[in-house]
Design a protein around this nucleic acid. Sequence first.
RNA 1: GCCCACGUAGCUCAGUCGGUAGAGCACUUUCUUGGUAAGAAAGAGGUCCCCGGUUCAAGUCCGGGCGUGGGCUCCA
Length: 599
Amino acid sequence: MLVEEQREPGSDMVVEIENEQDLALATMRHSTAHLMAEAVREIYPDVKFAIGPAIDNGFYYDMDLDHALTPEDLAEIELLMGRHREAAEPFVRTEVSREEALKIFADNPYKVEILRELPAGSVITTYQQGDFLDLCKGPHVADTGQIGAFKLQSVAGAYWRGDERRPMLQRIYGTAWPTQDELDQYLHRLEEAQRRDHRKLGKELDLFSVNDEIGPGLILWHPRGAMIRYQVEQFEQKEQLARGYDLVYTPHIASEKIYQTSGHLETYKENMYSPMSIDEVDYYVKPMNCPGHIMIYKSQVRSYRELPVRLAELGTVYRYERSGTLHGMLRVRGFTQDDAHIFCREDQMIDEIAGVIDLAIYMADVFGYQFQAYLATRPEKWIGDDATWDRAIEGLRRGLEQAGVDYKLDEGGGAFYGPKIDIKWVDALGREWTGPTVQLDFNLPQRFDVNYIGEDGEKHRAVMIHRTLLGSMERFVGGLVEHYAAAFPVWLAPIQLALIPITDDQLPFCQQVAADAEAAGLRVKVFDQKERMQAKIRDAQMLKIPYMLVVGKREVEAGAVAVRLRSGQDLGAIPVDQFLTGVIARVESRSLELTDEVL
RNA sequence: GCCCACGUAGCUCAGUCGGUAGAGCACUUUCUUGGUAAGAAAGAGGUCCCCGGUUCAAGUCCGGGCGUGGGCUCCA
């Protein structure tokens, strides 16, 4: 395993270090954090620094400061940083005893707390550049002149030690790169990400909204967004049926009895909404689909012959998420999971796991994502016994190998009730998204006594696998919007064809083509408003409609359409039949591209 | 929930020192029938997020609430 996570007091590098280059970059970024601290202290001598690690793409420093920092302050700090960089101040490393260090940093409660946690005899290092001295394990670059191009990005609040009961500190985020060119490229990537923001595009293309009066974190799917979701759902459901899953539906509310048995009222209550009383029994809106699926499994005595039982549901759940955590479609309070639970014998476990992974890879391929798998092992708090955990982790490992997937270990990242595989999708911008998860559960089968009758005529505990492929429809479609920058492949595009008559004389022909296309199952919009053709093309372009079919006198006479792609490419006139046949083929093959020799 | 910022027409945003509101797009009507990213004119459209306070006077200042955004924590 190459992943190494360093969490050193006072000099964290909260970042994956996989090679020398990563280390050099992280070192430079961490030094930039010190450079920033030097500048901040020059302006605000009373500042007390907490920790300032390197992170992905940059660094931050947490500080206790009475003055509330503004973006204007950041510009001033940057300016000072530039001067200290030009001065090429050497980073001087000094070893001191813990007692000496406690004296040096006596007026900084954060550094003192860090020091107190270190063993009494340990050797402490400090680094000084200019007249700024900091407690720090290092390493650092030789002098501030070695620091590349940087930019301070934002001020945010952050709890000391990430603990909401501790003081709220101010955190300055920055980014740093070896060269100005790389910095510019990074800033450009950030702009691109903003341009693709699903909240912005969702509004522009009329895909979804949230509404104050409906409530925060609750998504209203508009017709075009709903069409994308519908296509995704139909595709996935059919694929699951083909792979031996059975579809089920379970109620949105359930009595408290089931959540007592499942343990959710003990361990998950803070995420559940207040109950409603029906005939003097408390009913909860479901936060998870598992209990319902378990009751379906348990509705009859199961023989080893009928396993595995794979129950799938697009299950809508509601969870209380704290207001500050809500984010567009990516973090919401009500969402629909593409959930499934597989009940099987232990000897079927590896095949089932491999089967889920195979399906997950297929989904990634269809939507054009790269992916990275993680195997999450036993956390500090856990239930069950060693042997079961070992067999389960081995099962997941062999499932991954059988599916031929490379993976990284996420040591201790499993749930208390079982280990899991997480697959992260890597989108067009190289960002990771929550993707499929395959989770083994030792807890619920025991609580609900989930079993089957074996060949020996005895009861055996069934293995229970939770799995989701897309996660939730909200998060998945939100992610898709950003992945494709809302330029959806034809099979997903809410509107696939724009019919654009040049004058009203071509309107009847356009309406006929539209009717033919719709009869063939395509989604069409005729641009019949009283506007010039250029304006209609612009409208269609803004909606990112894959194919714009311009029809003038020449096309009507030829029984053709002039095909313009949303890329701006002009394919010229194509006979209507030939064009429709080509598009239908692309829809059926779920092609990610709009053209090839067929069109 | 916590820290910071923000909330003005359907959308994107102006609004100076406190003197009761503006643009572009979209919408409606009229004119225009135009060959690959916006033809022209007119009209309509407002609880300036909500509640309270200061003031002769509040979109503007102050307090509280709600919502949104950037983070912390958490997560599908």
